[in-house]
């Protein structure tokens, strides 16, 4: 037993590059789907199909950095402008429009949570940040930001116990 352990470590080190190479390849359709055409998306989904249906539990896609399709990026820019102009209601509207185009983009949900927090709608902000977390996959940075946002919202709403708990969760992602 004691002999095999160093060997295993070496093996893991050796095989890491393989893993590193293969992971993005497997996940590339997912990562690209946001910016590429749905037509391509369909094809890639078909390509992935058989692999998915053969097992009950499909592979998990690797976390992606904030990535938006062109229209969503445009809407988020618009939201930023509206936010700067202190028209938070309009900014919320723009982000909601973005969510209709990319309903499962965790970053867009986070953005909405942030605007709601800024509006002082703390309960709403907490729920939206939780929603963002549920879609964040392995994006630790985003998950941490969501917990921080929840902590701030709880604190602003006077719920310091929940705020402390959320802060602890955020720290786990440092």
């Amino acid at each position: 037993m004691t002999n095999t352990r160093p060997m295993m470590i070496w093996l893991i080190i050796l095989t890491l590059p393989i893993g590193a190479c293969s992971t993005p390849m497997r996940s590339s359709p997912t990562a690209h789907s946001a910016s590429s055409l749905p037509g391509d998306q369909d094809e890639s989904a078909q390509g992935r199909g058989p692999a998915q249906t053969s097992s009950y539990e499909p592979q998990v896609a690797v976390a992606m950095s904030p990535q938006y399709s062109m229209p969503v990026a445009a809407l988020l820019e618009e939201a930023s402008r509206q936010e700067t102009a202190n028209d938070l209601t309009a900014a919320v509207g723009s982000v909601e429009r973005a969510l209709r185009i990319e309903p499962r983009n965790a970053h867009v949900w986070h953005r909405l949570a942030f605007l709601r927090m800024k509006q002082g709608r703390h309960a709403m902000a907490v729920e939206l940040a939780a929603k963002s977390n549920s879609l964040a996959g392995g994006d630790a940075e985003l998950v941490r930001d969501n917990w921080r946002l929840m902590a701030r919202s709880y604190r602003a709403a006077g719920d310091s116990a929940s705020a402390a708990a959320a802060e602890r969760r955020a720290k786990a992602y440092r």
Partner: peptide
């Protein structure tokens, strides 16, 4: 209707 490249 929202028109954008990539829309279905």
């Amino acid at each position: 209707l929202e028109l954008y490249p990539g829309a279905k």
